[in-house]
Simulated scan of single mutants.
Amino acid sequence: MRSPAILETQSTGPSFGGLMELYESNYLFLRRLLPEDGEGVCRVSPLAKGAALHVELLESTPYTRTYYLTHQFLAEEAPAGETLPALRIRIYYDARVAEVVGRGRRGQAREQGPSLEWRWRANRFLNRWLRFCLGEGHRFGSPTA
């Protein structure tokens, strides 16, 4: 697998093969970030400085799980406890890939349709965001109510 840095410098733009590599890389980063059991309503990874990272399990099947992942900013950092970015991510454990399936918590389909360009941009963003979160020290612990 090529490194994510190589994926970002492709001169030809998004490709199906490159997208699959992003999905694989996203899966590896998410496995480091998320707990193994996947049970629980919501989990929080707080840091002394910066926004807490929140994850909520939205759907679970034998081979997939769909999560809502966002930073929760405090009222003094953003108006009304803003949550940004706010992504729905599906992990396919049998295929060992993960992809962005939409923005927002529930009920919003892919805003730009399932085009290669939209998937490329959304998953490249997720890849960079996950690297940032892991670099900041985020990890999810036990569930909260």
Rank of each mutant, 00 (worst) to 15 (best):
I89G: 00
R131P: 10
A48D: 15
L130Q: 04
R131I: 11
L84N: 13
R65Q: 12
G141L: 07
K49A: 15
A75K: 15
A95W: 13
Y68A: 05
L87P: 01
A52M: 09
L130N: 01
A98I: 03
E77N: 10
Y63L: 11
A78Y: 02
F125L: 10
P114L: 14
Q112C: 15
P62I: 08
S115M: 05
A52K: 07
I91Q: 03
S115P: 00
I89C: 00
P62C: 12
F140N: 01
G113T: 10
R119F: 09
F132K: 05
Y93G: 08
R88A: 01
R88P: 08
L116E: 03
Y93C: 09
P85G: 08
G104C: 02
G107E: 01
P114K: 10
R119I: 08
A95T: 11
R105D: 05
S60N: 14
R105S: 06
T61G: 13
Q112M: 14
G135T: 00
A98N: 01
E77R: 09
Q108D: 12
E117A: 15
N127A: 06
P114A: 13
L134G: 03
Y68P: 01
R88S: 02
C133W: 02
F73N: 04
A98Q: 03
R105G: 01
G50R: 03
L53P: 02
L74T: 10
V101N: 07
C133Q: 04
G137R: 01
P46L: 08
G135V: 00
L116G: 02
R103M: 09
T144R: 13
R65H: 10
L126Y: 01
Q112F: 07
T144Y: 11
T64K: 07
A145H: 12
P79Q: 13
R124Q: 11
E56Y: 08
A52Q: 12
E77L: 09
R110H: 14
